[in-house]
Design a binder for these strands. Structure first.
Lengths: 162, 162
DNA sequence: ATTTTTGCAAATCATTTGCATATAT
DNA sequence: ATATATGCAAATGATTTGCAAAAAT
């Protein structure tokens, strides 16, 4: 019951997506959530993953690899909290898989590298204008949108991807 | 193995999304697919749904309601074929659910009404420019994108939604 | 103390698969 | 004829749930 990814447009702040564990504490202060060991651990695992996208299963595996025990359900539940807090966002890969990426609060779009998986924030005022135009053309009152971009990041552009 | 929704930008043609069963036959001519009773039936069910989004389970239920028997697997398999043919597109609702919408070949974006579920095609050359700009800014070679817009359609804008 | 969170295992849900039979070409 | 498609039921995979025990406030 806490899985909405309604994406509002608002400029992103920093260029590259990644998560600061301290953000968790900040986020928790605002809510009635508790700072527990599993949550700390998961935040750390996410932070350590850097800029790539990951699934709940990935986190579970990461935890296992480091002998950190967290239950499967806890991973999902924590991910939900982080979604609510705006610390991660759920994305849908081109093949329909669900994944998550770490992001700043109020960040809202990213380009995902199809070779290495890295994701980079997109700050795009222009998109806002484009969406306004679409609203005008279709007559819809557009409340939310979701944009996912897939491509090859600068360092993967030479790759023969295979 | 036929579920890619990599979305290329290309102008849509007609304003409102809905599916013409005849399109199936056209689509089949080009391929080595066969025109079977279950496929006809499913096309009809989709067409009858009009412009809303639907899930595989919805179709299965629709079929049941009309005493048309199609196996669950056939629904999924047919949907895959229709995806390949570009007759339907897979979308991800704001809550992360997967759904499908009927669409014209080479159509590629739609606004989905959060009140009634209707979807309308978006013809947007401007988006193309926006995406080009994003590519330039981030340094990514953008190969595909997916854009989903959610809002209230003209007739639902008075609604007190829920 | 009291409320939230956890871990587990079982439950649920969507989607896929194997395989023998049926059907379109 | 022959390749493709179907239906079934079982398999898979992801996510959720109930509940008693554990931890945070």
């Amino acid at each position: 019951m806490a899985r909405t990814t309604a994406v509002e447009y608002e400029p992103a702040r920093r260029p590259t997506t990644s998560l600061d564990p301290a953000a968790l504490e900040v986020a928790l202060e605002t809510s009635d959530l508790r700072l527990t060991a599993p949550r700390r651990a998961l935040m750390q695992l996410i932070a350590d993953r850097g800029t790539g996208h990951f699934s709940a299963a990935d986190l579970l595996a990461d935890a296992g690899a480091r002998r950190i025990h967290v239950g499967r359900a806890t991973v999902f539940r924590t991910l939900d909290r982080l979604l609510d807090a705006g610390l991660v966002e759920r994305v849908d890969l081109p093949d329909g898989e669900h994944a998550y990426v770490a992001c700043q609060r109020s960040h809202h779009h990213h380009v995902i590298c199809t070779v290495c998986g890295r994701s980079t924030d997109v700050a795009d005022a222009e998109l806002r204008a484009t969406i306004g135009a679409i609203g005008r053309t279709t007559g819809y009152a557009i409340d939310a949108h979701r944009l996912e971009l897939y491509g090859r990041c600068p360092s993967c552009q030479g790759s023969t991807s295979g």
